[in-house]
Design a protein around this nucleic acid. Structure first.
Lengths: 219, 219
DNA sequence: CGACATAGTGTACAATTGTTCACTAATTCG
DNA sequence: CGAATTAGTGAACAATTGTACACTATGTCG
């Protein structure tokens, strides 16, 4: 095996160790450098060949996770957009994606409120960016043509907040085994709820009037 | 000083130590029994005179926090309900209350996704209970008379999710000093956003039709 | 081949942790 | 008063932690 391959392999083992322990319910702060190295089958000192600290390991996981999340957004965008089934389809994709990349979302959900300030800020920025992207996507819908940028950001923020809540709920859904998916019936039930929670605010869109905001011609 | 007073005092010192360290950004998992005792000005062994473990200390903080939160709900309910200003007033009360009880909310926000399963579940249950109470409150509004119980729970869940997001955002608002409130202007700005995010879903209420649910006469 | 680079090893060290145990000092109460 | 209860002390323990350093083995490449 080539040297680069070995290197990449243990690096992945370290990331995997951290990811899977967080998926098992531990917080990022409770992960010690030593325990991660141990779980990766490597001696503590070897950890430093790949990351200068646990912070760096965490940031690498943030990158991984949001890369995966972006691939989801792309998929949803390219999926063709039947105008009325868009919410249903989006929730379907979301649930599917979260279950398929469970560890990534479990990591982000856990590290988002961790004691590690570096990670918290990194994740907060990624979410902000993600929200802005969603806002520009929303701007393309005819119904939202006349909305101010501020209101679009508000709507995107609202949807992202719901998305986060939904994701956290998915991760907490009872599973058959420690490594299994939730029961399909419970999942269907949950999807219905999530759909409703996303649909209700959208029903408010047609009657929305930007209130308390003076719309100036150029910013 | 009476013995009971002394006891109560160091107990409070222990709770305060944990609370304030979490408000400063540390996670519950990173609080060691020793460090909490140290911050409370007490020797580690003395900790055990009050709590059998950090878990118990955490549960006591959960009680404290949700007691405070309930007092907020009561206040909002008794505040008299001018039907159109209700959202505005609720947000005002919420912001005021979070700033006044910052430590409690910081604790809950942090422990909600901590690695400590006991705390996570305790908090999740409290939030569920809180959501149900809100749902029965909502049921009293004439516009929601015909809504199914399920849809009311859905709406309450949606509002609670937004509330949680708003609370977390308040806690992250930049403050002047380490112990100061956010700048009033930034706060006003933020309140406007929060109001909008709560108002939009409510605008959807009149056009809501329970979809995909067969309403059976008795459950 | 042979010198070099480097991923991973093994050992060591000081710090901090949770828990225990015998203790002291002070309040409570018969 | 005087005995009993009890909040808090101080020392001790085994375990675990992050980091450092000299090392070995094994691919890389001139």
């Amino acid at each position: 095996m080539t040297q680069a391959e070995r290197r990449h392999q243990t690096r992945q083992a370290l990331l995997e160790a951290a990811r899977s322990r967080m998926d098992a319910g531990e917080s990022f702060d409770s992960l010690s450098l030593r325990s991660v190295a141990r779980a990766a089958g490597v001696v503590p000192a070897a950890f430093y060949r790949h990351f200068a600290s646990m912070d760096e390991l965490g940031l690498a996981l943030v990158d991984e996770s949001f890369l995966s999340l972006r691939s989801m957004l792309r998929r949803a965008r390219e999926d063709g957009l039947p105008p009325e089934h868009i919410v249903h389809r989006s929730v379907e994709i979301l649930v599917e994606h979260v279950l398929a990349h469970r560890q990534h979302f479990a990591f982000v959900a856990g590290a988002r409120s961790s004691g590690n300030g570096v990670l918290r800020h990194a994740i907060r920025n990624e979410i902000r960016l993600f929200t802005s992207e969603l806002a520009t996507d929303l701007a393309r819908f005819p119904i939202l043509r006349e909305w101010t940028t501020e209101d679009l950001q508000m709507l995107a923020g609202l949807l992202v907040n719901s998305m986060i809540a939904i994701i956290e709920a998915i991760l907490e859904l009872p599973t058959s085994g420690p490594a299994g998916d939730p029961r399909p019936e419970a999942l269907k039930e949950f999807v219905r709820l999530a759909e409703k929670q996303l649909r209700l605010p959208l029903l408010g869109v047609p009657s929305w009037r930007s209130i308390g905001v003076k719309e100036t011609p150029a910013g």
